[in-house]
Simulated scan of single mutants.
Amino acid sequence: MTDVPLRMLGWAVHVTACGLLAIAVVGMLREDRAGVAVGGVLLGLLYAVGPAVQGRAVVAPVWLGLVTGGWVVLAVAAPAFVWVAFPLLYAYLSVLPLWGAMFGVAVLTSAAIVAAAWHAGELTTPLLVGPGVAAVVVTLLALACKALRAEADRE
């Protein structure tokens, strides 16, 4: 019974990632930046492989590294891609052990703040606080899901 809401939450995260990528890709096409748009589509295709590799001890971290690398390139190329970091936080918490996930979340959140500030030309309070709050919320949500999944497995 607990499995259905957890699966729905996972799919909600994936839909959010796809939606953010689609918004960024369309924005790049409107700006006549087709190369960056193609990069966004490729990142989306790579991200879509995620559910198939989750649970595979060796493949999943490699996938996460590739997705993160693609995100970094796109986040530097265009500000619209910076916000794709937030669904990736959930992936870090799903794929990596807790210590690695916490480190990854901290690094990815910091990178999102730096990239957003760089594109804006300055570091503002919303650019600092927003990603930090989002990282905390995603982390708590993922940890709650892991706890619910562990409880459901015990039943």
Rank of each mutant, 00 (worst) to 15 (best):
G35A: 12
A117L: 09
A52N: 06
D153I: 05
V41I: 13
G132D: 08
R149Q: 15
L74H: 02
V138I: 11
T16H: 12
V136L: 14
L128K: 06
A24G: 03
L20Q: 09
W63L: 11
A116I: 06
L88H: 01
W99S: 13
A91V: 02
W118G: 03
G10H: 03
Y47E: 09
V107I: 15
G104Q: 03
A152G: 06
A111L: 15
V107G: 11
A142E: 00
G44H: 04
G55I: 13
H119G: 03
P51S: 07
V58E: 02
A91T: 02
M102W: 13
A37H: 06
H14A: 12
Q54D: 13
E122A: 14
A48S: 13
V26Y: 08
T16I: 09
T2M: 15
I23C: 04
D32N: 15
V62D: 02
A120G: 05
V59Y: 02
V26S: 02
G10Y: 07
V15L: 15
A60Y: 05
A48F: 03
G27P: 10
L6Y: 04
A60S: 07
W99E: 14
A17F: 09
G55Y: 14
S94K: 02
V38Y: 00
A60H: 08
V76I: 15
A17R: 03
V38L: 11
V36R: 00
L9A: 12
V36K: 00
F81P: 03
V13A: 14
M8Y: 13
A91Q: 05
L88A: 03
L96D: 05
T139F: 05
H119V: 05
S94Y: 01
V4F: 06
V73R: 11
W83T: 12
G100L: 02
